[in-house]
Amino acid sequence: MKIVVIGGSGRIGEKLVRNLRQEDCRVFEASRSWGVDTVTGVGLAEALVDAETVVDVSNSPSLEGADALHFFETSTRNLLAAGRAAGVRHHIALSIVGVDGLLAGDYFRAKKIQEDLVRASGIPFTILRSTQFFEFISDVVQEGTARDIPISPALAQPIAGEDVADTLADAALSDPFNAMLEVAGPEQFRLDAIATEIATAHEDGRRVVADVHARYFGAELGERSLLPGPDARIAPQRFDDWLRDSLRPGWAAARAG
């Protein structure tokens, strides 16, 4: 069974590739660093030869609205067309919990376009919507301004990237659901509270500012905009465990190895 992971060298992709190889799957890492560009189509047909399943965990190089819209629409159209030509039997796309209610942000609109294209493609599919990654929230904290880190106080149920990869691996080894599924972490937090814990753990002296108008990928959040529905799969890793592990010397390299 050949599984192609689009975005296989990225944060989730590299974990997914490792997990699938531990299951003795034949895995092809498809990314620009491996000579596959889904936007231009270069290398795409060759990558999908004999592929039964495609898992798309790619992301736009730029999160700016117009760039994200161009990336997800063009990349998804090219990937689905190549998948139909290659006889792919299961297309899996990673998306975001709450995307339907956040379409004021171009990034979320881009992800919704991706979902709609997958649904309409005629290829059996699974769309996995995930809540925010702990790792992503950590990135947001580190990218704050020189003095303040403005963050929405909206509720969230964040998840470890490793748990997202585990869920995607399960989907790749299953029959298509032809539906949208959700996965989330086991605990709810306010975004500003979890950002404060991350900043404190990293001895970051900047102030985390709870701002209800702070934009999240260009969208203003309501209190429950990021929460999953009642049928979401709940991943096991808790925030304190993830944070403790992430602070260990060599942890990132060990998780990627």
Rank of each mutant, 00 (worst) to 15 (best):
G98V: 01
V99R: 01
D100P: 09
D100G: 15
D100W: 11
L102M: 12
L103H: 09
A104Y: 08
G105H: 04
G105C: 03
D106T: 10
D106S: 14
D106E: 14
Y107H: 12
F108K: 00
A110K: 00
K111C: 01
I113L: 13
Q114C: 08
L117R: 01
V118C: 00
R119G: 04
A120W: 07
S121W: 05
G122N: 10
G122I: 11
P124W: 12
T126Q: 06
L128A: 10
R129E: 06
R129W: 03
T131V: 09
F133W: 07
F133C: 02
E135R: 00
F136I: 11
F136A: 13
F136S: 10
I137W: 03
V141E: 03
Q142I: 04
Q142F: 13
G144E: 05
G144W: 09
R147P: 00
D148C: 12
I149C: 03
I149L: 02
P150C: 06
I151Y: 10
I151P: 05
S152Y: 03
A154I: 06
A154V: 06
A156C: 14
P158Y: 07
I159K: 10
I159A: 11
A160G: 11
D163R: 02
D163V: 00
D163G: 00
D166F: 11
A172P: 03
A172Q: 04
A172D: 01
L173H: 05
S174R: 11
P176G: 11
A179L: 07
M180T: 15
L181G: 11
L181W: 07
E182T: 07
E182V: 06
E182P: 04
V183M: 04
V183R: 04
A184M: 02
G185N: 07
P186R: 03
E187G: 05
Q188I: 14
F189M: 08
R190C: 14
L191T: 03
A193Y: 12
I194N: 03
I194E: 05
I194T: 06
A195D: 02
T196R: 15
T196F: 13
E197G: 07
A201V: 06
H202C: 10
H202N: 14
D204W: 01
D204F: 01
R206V: 09
R206Q: 09
V209Y: 05
A210M: 06
H213K: 15
A214L: 11
Y216P: 01
Y216S: 13
F217Y: 12
L221W: 04
R224C: 13
R224W: 08
R224H: 15
L226W: 08
L227M: 13
D231E: 10
D231L: 03
R233G: 11
I234L: 07
I234W: 01
A235M: 04
A235L: 03
P236F: 05
Q237I: 15
Q237Y: 10
R238N: 03
F239D: 09
